[in-house]
Simulated assay, not measured.
Amino acid sequence: MTTDPAPATTVAAVPSPAGPTDSSTPATIAAAATDKTGGATVEFVALRRSFGATTALDGLDLTVNPGELVALLGPSGCGKTTALRMLAGFETPDSGQVLVDGEDVTHLPAHRRDAGMVFQSYSLFPHLNARDNVAFGLKMRKTGKAERHRRADELLELVGLPTHGDRYPHQLSGGQQQRIALARALALQPRVLLLDEPLSALDAKVRENLREEIRRLQQELGITTLFVTHDQEEALSMADRVAVMHAGRLEQCDTPAELYARPATAFVAEFVGTMNRIPGVLAGDGATVELFGQRLPVDGATELRGDVDALVRPENVLLTAGGGQGALVVGTTFLGATTRVTVQLPDGTAVKADLSTHDAAALPAGTGVTVSFPERPVLVDTRR
Rank of each mutant, 00 (worst) to 15 (best):
R167I: 11
P162L: 10
R191N: 06
T224Y: 01
V206C: 06
L194I: 04
Q178E: 04
I180W: 00
H164K: 15
G222K: 03
S173D: 05
N209S: 10
R216M: 13
Q178T: 00
L226W: 03
R150T: 12
V228Q: 04
L156E: 09
A204E: 09
E147Y: 03
K145D: 11
V228F: 10
D166W: 09
D203E: 00
K145E: 13
R207M: 08
T224M: 05
A152H: 14
T229I: 04
A204F: 13
A187D: 08
L194W: 01
E157R: 07
Q177F: 05
Q189I: 08
R167L: 15
T229P: 05
S173P: 05
P198Y: 03
D153H: 09
I214F: 11
R216P: 08
D203L: 04
R150W: 13
G165L: 11
G174D: 08
Q176L: 05
E212D: 12
D203F: 04
A146Q: 12
L226P: 07
E213N: 03
D153S: 01
I223R: 05
N209W: 00
E212H: 12
V192T: 05
D196H: 12
L188R: 11
P198C: 09
L182A: 03
L226I: 08
P190N: 01
G160A: 09
H164R: 15
L194V: 02
Q219I: 09
L158P: 00
L188E: 10
R151A: 15
L226T: 04
G222M: 00
L156Q: 08
Q218I: 09
E220W: 08
L202G: 02
P169W: 01
F227A: 08
L182K: 01
P169A: 13
A181Y: 02
G174W: 06
V228Y: 09
E147P: 06
T225L: 11
E220L: 15
R211I: 10
A185R: 04
Q178I: 00
L195I: 01
L182R: 00
N209D: 10
G175A: 07
R211Q: 13
E147G: 05
Q176W: 01
P198M: 02
R215S: 14
D231Q: 02
R191T: 03
D231V: 14
P190Q: 02
A181W: 01
G174P: 06
G174I: 05
E147Q: 13
D231G: 00
V228W: 10
L226S: 07
V159L: 13
E208G: 08
H170R: 15
T225S: 13
E147F: 07
A183H: 03
E157T: 11
H164V: 14
G175K: 05
T225M: 12
L217I: 15
D166N: 13
A152P: 10
A204C: 12
A146R: 15
T163D: 15
R179P: 03
